[in-house]
Design a binder for these strands. Structure first.
Lengths: 154, 154
DNA sequence: TATTGTTATACTCTATAACTATA
DNA sequence: TATAGTTATAGAGTATAACAATA
């Protein structure tokens, strides 16, 4: 019980052409992104919050502006996210040593732990779905990730 | 001007191990999803709204519940999105012929046009980034989309 | 009782505009 | 002037809980 109105026998409508790669990729990425959110535990960090933490774990201490650019959001958005993370004691904020305008955001030990633990949990759903794949299929996905990162400048 | 604090010469921190495929894929999908949003025109439909319209274009008339399941959201979320789309005259709402509890949502002509036009515009940024790829690389991405759709049940 | 859909409410994520402080 | 960051404000997207109508 999840598709049509149950009175119409699925007469696939007007546009039943196969879209091009850009369309397919765009739609697939967005659907998968939404699905990943739907599968996340309640009480988890939000996606944006986790992504900031993971970025700090990977790149080390950064300024709010640098983080905003990495995350493709505007500075006020990052101000808000960082305020939350700081209040939760997952990051610290210190003045920049030489430039009084800047501040430096750094992961706390608790933040680093949370990255590792959350990553483990978040991977579970995806890893389960990946489990049945052949070596070839996994290689295709690995290559696709590499291509996307390069070409989309991710 | 976008990376470190400019005083530390990027001493990549603690965790410089290459994560597994599940992690890489998860992060890549979420970053790309955010980037796609950041590149969309202001005044555009939101992602969720467009996705509902595109789903109707592809699957034909559907009940709110069916759409909510397709989109991986809860029914109240879909109520809200559909109210917006109906007010904008992009979809119509009619009573189900035999089940008084259900309603049937259908694309209007304006809605169908908007799907086509928006799809064309939304593909632009992605298509540009895909343009330089070799035939092999494009084939890898096409295969990856097929695999993801199948295995993630998208 | 079970299902469909809505209303009420709240939280996350995002943006633009306008401001302060520093360079 | 230009840059880094914040505050104020608004809007989209999402969820859970509680409800009404229908099956």
């Amino acid at each position: 019980m999840e598709d049509m109105t149950s009175s119409s026998p699925a007469p696939t409508p007007a546009s039943r052409t196969r879209p091009d790669l850009a369309t397919e990729l765009r739609i697939t990425v967005q659907r998968l992104s939404r699905r990943l959110r739907a599968e996340s535990d309640p009480g988890d960090l939000g996606e944006a919050q986790f992504s900031v933490l993971a970025g700090l774990h990977h790149h080390g201490p950064s300024t709010p502006r640098a983080i905003a650019e990495r995350e493709s959001v505007q500075p006020p958005t990052m101000t808000r996210t960082l305020a939350y993370l700081e209040k939760a004691e997952l990051v610290t904020r210190t003045d920049h040593p030489t430039d009084g305008r800047q501040v430096v955001i750094e992961l706390t030990a608790a933040g680093a732990d949370l990255v590792k633990e959350t990553r483990r949990r978040r991977n579970h759903w995806m890893a389960q779905h990946l489990r049945g794949l052949s070596a070839d299929e996994r290689a295709t996905l690995t290559d696709a990730v590499t291509i996307l990162r390069r070409v989309m400048d991710l």
